[in-house]
Simulated scan of single mutants.
Amino acid sequence: MSKTKSFLLGIAVGGVVSATTTLFTAPLSGRDLRTRAKQQGAEWLDLLENVKNDGLKLKDQIAQTSKEGVVMIKDLTQEIKTSVTEWKESVEPHQKKIQSYLEQIEGSLKELEEKVKKRIV
């Protein structure tokens, strides 16, 4: 006999022996045991059905949340672009004033340098 057949025969014999032992040592009668097994089987089926339904609900919720997230990110991106544009528009006049002041300061520094050079020479 090959190892696989011996292994399978061992499992079968072990299963029969354990089932027989369980039936003889069971505290319940056969009818009560079958009823209880049937009830537990129904409970397991209900539990599996609930797990399946919860999994489907979770999948749907994740899909919905990701769709909402995409919309929110698009809206946020648009708001940021608008804010940056408004900020640039509000800062631009001040930039021109600062640039004008810097040009005046540069001109004053050149005049001062010329005066200093004339006094040194």
Rank of each mutant, 00 (worst) to 15 (best):
E103W: 01
E79T: 12
R34G: 08
I62Y: 06
S66D: 13
E49P: 02
W87E: 09
E111Q: 07
I80P: 12
W87H: 14
K110H: 01
T82W: 03
R36Y: 02
L112W: 02
V51C: 00
R31T: 11
K88V: 05
T22L: 15
I62S: 08
K52I: 01
V84A: 15
G55T: 07
T20M: 12
V70K: 05
L56F: 07
S66K: 10
K52S: 10
K74N: 07
E103D: 05
A12S: 15
W87R: 14
S29E: 04
S18E: 08
L58P: 01
A26G: 06
A26E: 12
L109N: 04
S6T: 14
K88M: 11
T25H: 10
K57D: 12
Q64P: 01
V13G: 08
Q64E: 11
A12R: 14
W44L: 13
V17D: 05
P27H: 11
A19D: 05
S83N: 13
V116E: 14
S108K: 13
S6W: 09
L102V: 02
R31A: 12
T65D: 08
A19K: 04
A12M: 12
G107P: 00
L28F: 02
I120K: 15
N53W: 00
S108V: 03
Q40A: 02
G14L: 04
K117A: 11
M1Q: 09
L8N: 10
V71K: 15
L8A: 12
L48F: 02
K81Y: 03
I62H: 07
I73L: 10
Q104I: 00
A42H: 03
E79C: 03
Q61C: 03
V70N: 03
E114I: 00
Q78G: 05
G10K: 14
S108D: 06
L48Y: 02
V13M: 12
I105Q: 00
S66P: 00
E113H: 05
K67W: 07
E114C: 00
K117D: 09
K67V: 11
D54H: 04
L112C: 09
L47I: 14
D75G: 02
E68D: 12
V116Y: 08
T77Y: 07
T21D: 05
I73W: 04
D46M: 06
V51Y: 02
E49F: 05
R31D: 13
A63F: 04
P27N: 07
V70P: 01
V51G: 01
D46L: 10
G14F: 08
S2M: 12
L76W: 11
T22H: 05
G15Q: 07
S66G: 03
S6C: 07
E89D: 15
